[in-house]
């Protein structure tokens, strides 16, 4: 009985982000973090593990340095990690990424009682597409935007959050659940875990390991297999600096409101 969680290492977009002259992102200048929603998915898996004894396995696709992130996750309580990594996988859009991760998960194997989890979306692209697309490629039902998860045998009851409320959905395992930050508060690494994590299992699945899977084909992976391409990228325009008003007293707010009234803004 296991829970597979897909996780992404992302640039920290909440801090300073440097953009190169050609409009691409200066990744070298940025810190990488574990995608925040993915941490909520890991926490959800670990709390189910605490209660029901699941084995928790994390999958990530990315370059070799993502190993550091995987060790951190094992220090939190994850049992095993898989790094899906190959030159051929580079440049994949969400469709191609899902195809590769689905092939990796399928190769690893899952059964009737297993759950696959993901964060709702990653902060670099904010697409929320890879979770549902992995589910589609594995022919699994999905519940996205999970705000609460309860388990009763092979049935999960999930609160699926909507803009104006929520739906309660029952779904049988195996299934895909994508998690939002309201679901829980991710735990920290333990001191013991930070020592132990270096001896815990980390497998690399490269192109050789996956190339015979039916989902893996030059026409469906990597830059060439991606249905979408970037046509242009650019930085949004900076609106010109407006008027800074002197002072911060009543005469200042009166002046501001005077201007707004004169311009019929209010």
């Amino acid at each position: 009985m296991k829970i597979i969680v897909t996780v992404k290492q992302v640039p920290d977009t909440s801090g300073k982000v440097a953009v190169n002259a050609d409009g691409t992102l200066d990744r070298a200048s940025m810190q990488t973090i574990i995608n925040p929603d993915d941490l909520n998915a890991v926490e959800a898996a670990l709390s189910l593990k605490d209660e029901y004894g699941y084995k928790v396995v994390v999958f990530t696709m990315g370059p070799a340095p993502a190993e550091g992130m995987l060790r951190e996750l094992m220090a939190m309580g994850v049992d095993e990690t898989v790094l899906v990594s190959a030159r051929q996988f580079g440049g994949s859009d969400t469709y191609a990424t899902s195809q590769i991760l689905a092939a990796a998960i399928d190769t690893y194997g899952f059964d009737d009682e297993d759950i696959i989890m993901a964060g709702r979306q990653a902060i670099d692209g904010d697409t929320a597409q890879v979770g549902p697309q992995i589910a589609e490629k594995l022919h699994l039902p999905q519940v996205t935007y999970a705000g609460d998860i309860k388990k009763d045998g092979k049935v999960l009851t999930v609160k699926r959050m909507l803009e104006d409320g929520y739906m309660t959905i029952k779904v049988k395992t195996p299934c895909m659940i994508t998690c939002i930050k309201e679901l829980n508060e991710p735990r920290y690494m333990t001191v013991n875990g930070t020592v132990k994590c270096w001896d815990m299992p980390l497998t690399v699945m490269d192109y050789e390991a996956l190339k015979d899977h039916e989902l893996i084909d030059a026409t469906t992976i990597g830059l060439k297999g991606s249905p979408t391409n970037i046509y242009k990228s650019f930085t949004p325009p900076q609106k010109g600096v407006g008027m800074m008003l002197e002072g911060s007293g009543k005469e200042t707010t009166d002046k501001l409101v005077g201007i707004l009234t004169a311009k019929h803004i209010i």
């Binding site: 859009d93 697409t127 890879v130 996205t144 699926r160």
Partner: peptide
């Protein structure tokens, strides 16, 4: 790009083997 649109569109795009641009 509502919570429902973002659940449905990726699933349809994957089934139809086509590209989807979010948000």
């Amino acid at each position: 790009a509502s919570n429902i649109g973002r659940d449905l569109a990726p699933r349809c795009a994957a089934r139809l083997h086509t590209g989807l641009c979010a948000d």
